Simulated assay, not measured.
Amino acid sequence: MEQATFAAGCFWGVEAAFRQIPGVHETSVGYTGGNTDNPTYPEVCNGTTGHAEAVQITFDPAQVSYTQLLEIFWQCHDPTQRNRQGPDVGTQYRSAIFFHSPQQEAAANASKIQQEESERYDKPIATEIEAATTYYRAEEYHQQYLEKRGQSYCH
């Protein structure tokens, strides 16, 4: 099993997108990329911790490749919006790929270049690519939030 961590706006919808993929064995929503230990949702929302709302994925690379997960990442949000997704605004909603290995870093960078060259977007891609740091699992009521409410997407 391997791990992947992505930030693409509100973590509820991003988690829902990845949970349906064969080979994804577990997902959780949480906070990463910040400077405060054990942040809470209200702290992350006030923008002072530096964390992004993120989804951490445990996957079987024999069933789904990291490159395939990257494709889903690009499809489930607008990577040209800096520090926002739709009506959600703030650094916690930034677009970011948090790599766990040199191979993931290389794949993420190649994937970003491919997206930029695809001319799919009218604006430059704002997605950050950075090394995974401590990931803090969000409060339990955020886990599988949409699924618990019979919904499949946020907005």
Score class of each variant (00 low, 15 high):
Glu140Ile: 10
Phe59Pro: 06
Ala106Met: 01
Gly150Trp: 08
Arg137Gln: 15
His100Asp: 01
Glu26Asn: 06
Pro61Met: 07
Gln114Tyr: 01
Gly33Leu: 08
Met1Leu: 12
Glu71Pro: 00
Ala4Arg: 08
Arg19Thr: 13
Ala52Leu: 14
Ser95Gln: 08
Val14Ser: 07
Gln81Ser: 10
Glu130Val: 04
Ile72Ser: 03
Cys76Ile: 13
Gln103Asp: 12
Ala110Gly: 00
Pro22Cys: 02
Asn83Ile: 03
Asp60Cys: 11
Val64Ile: 14
Arg137Glu: 12
Ala110Ile: 02
Ala4Leu: 13
Ile129Gly: 04
Ala108His: 01
Val89Cys: 14
Glu147Gln: 15
Pro102Gln: 09
Tyr66Leu: 04
Glu119Leu: 14
Trp12Tyr: 09
Pro61Cys: 12
Gln3Leu: 15
Thr40Asn: 09
Lys123Tyr: 12
Ala132Phe: 01
Gln115Trp: 04
His25Phe: 12
Ala106Arg: 03
Glu119Trp: 06
Glu15Lys: 09
Val89Leu: 11
Glu140Gly: 03
Ser28Gln: 11
Glu139Gly: 04
Asn46His: 10
Val14Ala: 13
Ala126Gly: 04
Thr5Gln: 02
Leu70Tyr: 04
His155Lys: 14
Gln114Asn: 15
Gly90Phe: 09
Asp78Trp: 03
Glu139Trp: 04
Cys154Gly: 14
Tyr66Ala: 03
Arg137Lys: 15
Asn109Leu: 02
Gly9Asp: 07
Arg82Pro: 00
Ala138His: 11
Glu130Asn: 02
His142Cys: 05
Gly150Glu: 09
Thr133Val: 07
Tyr153Ile: 14
Phe98Cys: 02
Ser101Met: 06
Tyr93Gly: 08
Arg149Phe: 05
Thr32Asp: 09
Glu15Val: 10
Asp37Thr: 13
Pro124Arg: 00
Gly13Asn: 06
Ala17Phe: 04
Ser95Gly: 14
Ser101Ala: 06
Arg149Asp: 07
Pro22Met: 00
Phe99Cys: 00
Asp37Gly: 08
Ala54Phe: 04
Tyr153Glu: 15
Asp60His: 14
Ala17Asp: 07
Pro39Lys: 15
Asp60Pro: 06
Phe18Asn: 04
